[in-house]
Design a binder for these strands. Structure first.
Length: 253
DNA sequence: ATGGCTTCATAGTGAAGA
């Protein structure tokens, strides 16, 4: 099963890119983040025409997540249970017998801000919920924009980023706590090119200079295997791109 | 260079992202 995750930074603006990417790559599942669309505006018809069904949880202006799939999704959960959250950042569904969890982890803005505390609380709630979810669904994949670069090699300039959100100790500890639930980072199961990133700032010609971070990830539970995982930089080269690139993995039961 | 883009809300600028 080919699965992918992509922070599209507005599905309204990026719909042509998404449709083009689906057509060229033919994934079984594509998780989207930052759709920035109310549910009533979700482009179901256009996606259906491309051969995909969708479940989604969106809001105006910010956040919003969706799971596109060739076959129907079941047992859909919207938002983290037991975590009071206005922001639409999680959707989970079972597809082909695999529990598929799509997340848009808070950015955190700055380690001194309330948003950083919200980010850490959100990650703790995610971990707590996943621990139970893994008991009920041993075959589980967690895809999304984690807004965490797990290691220094995931950062173009670790010194410049030191002390910043996305790389701080507590955020990385939260990522490794997910790994301690038995989840494995598909990307690091294989030899990968050095300086592999999934996000590049729109400013400073960052993409052209490859000044990026690897913050979008696909984690799989122990009951699943992975035969391939890569970052697709192609959509980042298009006109009016998202600032994130898709991550793709081939997983098997 | 505490930002050099981009999106979205708006109707001239400001928040937020990462």
């Amino acid at each position: 099963m080919k699965v992918a995750t992509w922070n599209v930074n507005s599905l309204k603006v990026r719909l042509p890119h998404v449709l083009g990417w689906l057509s060229s790559n033919q994934p079984d599942v594509l998780c989207l983040q930052e759709t920035k669309l109310e549910d009533s505006l979700f482009p179901l018809a256009a996606l259906q025409q491309a051969g995909y069904l969708a479940v989604f949880s969106g809001q105006k202006t910010y956040n919003g997540v969706a799971i596109l799939s060739r076959v129907a999704a079941s047992e859909v959960v919207y938002n983290l249970p037991d975590f009071n959250d206005e922001q639409k950042r999680m959707i989970a569904a079972t597809i082909n017998g695999v529990r598929t969890v799509c997340v848009y982890v808070p950015n955190g803005q700055d380690i001194s801000s309330d948003k950083y505390q919200y980010k850490l609380a959100w990650l703790a709630a995610l971990r707590k919920w996943l621990k139970n979810e893994l008991v009920r669904h041993p075959k589980l994949v967690l895809l999304g924009d984690y807004n965490i670069a797990p290691e220094d090699r995931d950062v173009h300039d670790p010194q410049a980023w030191e002390g910043n959100v996305l790389v701080s100790g507590p955020e990385r500890a939260a990522f490794h706590a997910l790994e301690r639930l038995g989840l494995r980072d598909c990307f690091r199961l294989f030899d990968q090119p050095e300086k592999s990133y999934t996000w590049w700032d729109y400013r400073m010609l960052a993409f052209r200079r490859n000044l990026g971070l690897r913050i979008d990830h696909i984690l799989i539970s122990g009951a699943l295997g992975c035969s391939r995982c890569n970052i697709d930089r192609a959509p980042r080269k298009l006109e009016r791109p998202s600032d994130h690139a898709p991550v793709v993995a081939e997983i098997a039961c």
